[in-house]
Design a protein around this nucleic acid. Sequence first.
DNA 1: GAGTTTGAAACT
DNA 2: CAGTTTCAAACTC
Length: 978
Amino acid sequence: MYTQRWRRSSESLDDNTPLPELSFEDFLEPTQEETATQHHMEIDALDSDGDGDGGDEHSISIKESLNTPQFKRTVVTILEDKRLRSPGPAVLKSHAIKVVTAGAGSVAPIKPQITDIKVLNNFKPLSSNTVKIGNTTVAPTSSPGGTPKGLNSLTMTQIKTPDGKILYLQKSMPAGAAAKPAVAASTPTMPKAAVTVSSAGAVHHLVAPTGLQKAILSKAVNVGSTGLVKAAVPGKGGTSASTPLTIKGITPLGAKSVSPANSPTSTPAPKFQVVRTSDGKIIKINQASPSMIINTKANTTTTSGTGINAATSALKLSPSTGSVGLRKSIGQVVIRATPPKHGPDVSNSSTLTTGTSVTTNNASAPSGKMLVQNTGKQIVVSNKNIIKLSPKPGAASSITNTSGAQGNSPTKGIHAVQIPGKGGVVQYVRVLPSTKEVASTSSATAVARSNTSPKITLVRSVMSSAASSKSPSTPTSVGTKVVSVGNTNKIIMKTTGGSIVPLPSMQTLVSKRALGATNTRPPSVGSGNSGSQESPRKQRLNDLNIQHMAAADDASDSSEAGPETKRPRFVISVPQSSQKQQLQKHVMTRPSSIQRVTVQSANSNKSSTNPAKKVYNLLQSPKGVKYMICNSGIPQSSTSAMRRGYTGYVDGKTRRPLSIAAQQHRLQITPQQQAKNLQALQAQAKQRIRQQQLQNQPIAVQPKATQATVQPSQANANTIANANANPNPQSAKILPEKPLFEILKSPQLASAPTTDALAGMASRRKHCNCSKSQCLKLYCDCFANGEFCQDCTCKDCFNNLDYEVERERAIRSCLDRNPSAFKPKITAPNSGDMRLHNKGCNCKRSGCLKNYCECYEAKIPCSSICKCVGCRNMEDRPDVDMDSMDSLKDGEDSNKAKDGNDEQSQDDSDRYLTDDVVEATIMCMISRIVMHEKQNSALEDTEREVMEELGESLSQIISFGKEKIDTNELVDSMALSS
DNA sequence: GAGTTTGAAACT
DNA sequence: CAGTTTCAAACTC
């Protein structure tokens, strides 16, 4: 079935294929560890910009979350839409709720489940709006009143807002054996009010569909001021092994939903976007209502009786206590719930909502991460897959859909986006054309609009990639269109009345994860079909349904078992081609045709634990450049963070890390960028001068300097040579420097050639000795360099394949703190030898002349970036001005006076004015000229600049000379004193 | 090899 | 963002 979806090209693995390095983040694919049970869902966003308008942008993305054996979790993140234009019912502006529960997987996690709830902004409960995540639905209810009906019978968790508003999480009694806690805000009319939100006397009732929502919160969940709440949910039974936590929003299922849950009476037949995660969880977004459940502007008028103010943003969720607090400040709510173990529920729900064949398979579907952003611009599905929805009017060629073949969707034209879920599960996104286009309208009608769901248009650019797999299940029937997201694919969802913003790519969301690669294509780029923007299809998105379908062929993937199998591995390249192809479901996991390939060692079996198995993401740029990202392990190349010394041995030429972003940058180089490049070139030239000076400096530096300048091995010369051959900084061409295949290999897996290569360039000179960090913090050099510990003397080391989950989590943590954490600290901006410490040191006592200093250790002089005190490792700082000329003169004079030897000074000048220094100086001057030429600067200005450059260079040289003299003096004085 | 020093990383 | 603590490497003895 899906075989076509997946490209598993051994080619990509070809060592000869140039594979530009990718940032370390790129390697953070969903870990293998993720199990089907695990779910990580993020829902960002609810954009009700069209509250009144009905235009809403909604993006839903599903990402796979890291699942550790201990912690299985589903994360749902809802982000606020800051752009809410129309007033609407009180809406949470941005909300992030993160609930993490220990997975109830076959392997019962012993550790308590953690639930994180994070509310970023105002929370706006929508009466009719409901969000359904997996089995759990969260819906704000406008109905005033006390506890919803049937609360007593139900196990309820309350969420209280500062305002006194209360949200209830309802445990619907599971039809099946295991009851799952459901969180829902129900409209007052909801027959089964599982959850109610009452503020100011307004009560929202949550109705949980019997079959669908099941959530059990055994532990209280608290939302901290930070908006992040962690709650441990004991698993079922004493062991607490698996307690799926779901938030169940009971949304009035519009025409589609067959769900038992009753839609609020107030809302006739709201149209919903249903997103289904690979694990079978379903998220429904009621577009009819102006605001999504979770996100609405605070200022919005509340038609629904929800009393929650944006202002009141604090939420507390305590399952046990039932209290949930929402805070304004918190913009995000992430709910992580253990994925429902069993498909039946899911399937049911899915069928109810979507009713399409597509929905059927989820039982085993791996967890997915869904991110919905209020702005609605982006949808991230499974890891890096992104679907962007943008409100811009102009962009879209609306996709007119008539009733989709997919099933029972109430709405007519359904656009389906098929996204590969984990383990080959395909997620489908349906976009139902809204029948009504509402110009910006008053918000109040949110609930009432059931029929008139906000109009959302999906605009997608033509898929460039040809390989689109057809999912059998996907209806090719007329009306439903499957949108595959290809490289250039752009999906724009436009609510009526809302503007459609062409989403350049799906990458935006990825940014968090530093998927710079995706950005490589400007929106316009890519498919010849500009169409996405120009002729975007406009269509209401009534129902957004994303499903992860277990691809039959995925069996291989899934069968591969192991955590990896559950990760989505695919790349989506979608051919622009014909509509027919479009009808075909395209797997869209990654922006720019990224393909994920699982590579197993010859002997590797499907066993999940097989360390040898690795997943490579293959990426091919429009230009045909292939990139490979290794899923397992941290790519060494990309991460060569080089903390203390490693950097010093990495040669920019051979290992110059090139992040995806950087690559994109190159691809999209602009004149300004060119100018910057020139500047960088100048900087490099200066650095070169410095280095030259350092090399000549007899003291201390020399021995290491030689080392530092040693070029890495020629191992990859074949592939690298070309890349490096182009010194022209202006070149927009991607220059893969080294086959990532080798670079990315974990040390353990690295082939001999690779090892050699690495050894040549940056052989590990040492092994860590960590004792407390478990080698999962940047303290650990191995970890910081993206390497597995090997032959180290560390204690309790987790930096190995045995703890890949923890490791990946740690990586993510580091990246959260610092997205550049794994990027090389020392880089050569361009082609040059000039390496710069990106961050600079902060030495205070070492004078930057000991290896404590990262700059010194890397054999590079400190720069203006450094914050060091008493630095002795800088030959010339920018702040050095011509005054140094005088000082140098003085120094020379003093030196002369001291030595009484003019020849000495002459020798010094000869020493420092080496050919390299002169050359570098000239390069600086030339670069100025070039830059000015490009800028069409006046000749006079150019000349002046050039002379200034010369003066600056001379200043640096002089400074160096002066410092050297001072050093000599010091040495002499010390010698004398001794 | 133990103890100290150092500065980045992590934390508050 | 600044101050403090933690950490592991670098260094000293």
